[in-house]
Design a protein around this nucleic acid. Structure first.
Lengths: 217, 217
DNA sequence: TGAGATTATGACAGCTCAGTGACAAGAGGT
DNA sequence: ACCTCTTGTCACTGAGCTGTCATAATCTCA
């Protein structure tokens, strides 16, 4: 309740398995609040495994622990948690720690490095896309679209998700518009012969293939 | 241990006096990590005095504080600390903040040197810009603008960022003003035929191309 | 194979964004 | 006081980007 009053959207899950499902199902989770003791596996294990997987490696994590003992804290931080809160804690403290962590990670994301998928290179700093020594000219929307795909190669994005990620989750734009921008992105990628990397997943959305090689026959 | 694992060499001292000794004895200290509470004087005092002496005026300082209260933070920053970390913090956070601060100060140190991008030369000392044996006359604003671009070639600066960097982050000036100064800078660069280096990145801002060669047709 | 659903493509009108010239206010020098 | 250079703002223009739609192409399943 405190978090929602602070403007956050909260999804609660009861088990480690449910947490994994929620995390892999959506891409809209900005931060995880993990209890030390959880049914179906310890929170520590969950944190450790989240840090191993590429998709959740940078996910900000705050651990909740009942005991504020030194060894617990360092174990949690070693496992990969970014911060911890020991019970009992005030709602105010929780909110301010979450906001602080979100602020920190937002800054870090801004310094993100160049992306590479196959022979495709995207540099967020210079706002440029290269492939095979050739610069790919892109409009702003196509750039963000490609960046979204390159941050999560091999992952299928639905049109809805792309609208959220690229256009922002408060815009009301027809889903078919995404098709057109995919088309334009493919056209721009065609001279470099990497347009086939953007695959259509019928009934689901689009996906960027991680490998450049063409295994389509 | 985390810092040494990250490639840093760490020297620990127990008192304010020992810190002063270490700092004046060697010239190899790149950054100071100062606790708020110290034996033999508060960390705040130490920071304040370090800022007074010429030898340590530019030393990057990070403060450690147990309480994340607003007043402490602003007091530390007012005293002259460049950043602060509130306990508890993760080793990862410590390392990344230290690296970030070192990166920042390294950039600043470069200000004293002459800058070169392609055939463009900018001398901060003499406040002059040369290219192809030709001096480029610039107003003060255009000079700072160009310096900003030359310190980070290939990087896209939004109008907002340029207003922060060139005008200062407390001025309230219309974003379109940046356009006009870009225009004037281009006009000044035109006689030397390097005006094409300043590229417009639609929807994002402006960028200085690192290479002089013109691949625009 | 054929109906139905889904996606690709070309065209287009609207709109956003950057380029540009003009202008007034201010700073600094004479 | 006058002049000159610099600087911030504005209005206008045009190029390029974007969202939408109609239609063609393609795929799926019965």
């Amino acid at each position: 309740m405190s978090l929602e009053r602070a403007g956050h959207t909260v999804t609660g899950v009861a088990t480690v398995a449910a947490a994994r499902t929620a995390l892999s199902a959506t891409d809209t989770i900005d931060l995880a609040l993990v209890d030390w003791m959880l049914p179906g596996g310890s929170g520590l294990e969950l944190v450790r495994s989240l840090r191993k997987e590429e998709q959740t490696r940078r996910l900000p994590i705050i651990m909740l622990t009942a005991r504020a003992e030194e060894e617990d804290i360092s174990a949690g931080l070693d496992a990969g948690a970014d911060d911890y809160i020991s019970k009992p804690f005030s709602p105010k403290e929780l909110v301010s720690r979450i906001n602080a962590l979100l602020r920190r990670t937002r800054d870090q994301l801004a310094i993100s490095d160049a992306l590479q998928v196959g022979s495709l290179f995207l540099n967020p700093q210079s706002h440029r896309v290269y492939t095979n020594e050739l610069e790919v000219p892109l409009g702003h929307t196509e750039f963000k679209l490609l960046r979204c795909f390159m941050m999560h190669p091999e992952r299928v994005f639905s049109r809805d998700q792309l609208l959220d990620q690229v256009w922002g989750n408060d815009t009301y734009i027809g889903e078919r518009t995404v098709d057109v921008h995919i088309l334009r992105l493919r056209k721009s990628l065609k001279p470099a012969k990497v347009d086939k990397m953007l695959e259509t997943v019928r009934g689901a959305g689009y996906r960027l293939r991680a490998t450049t090689d063409d295994s389509s026959h």
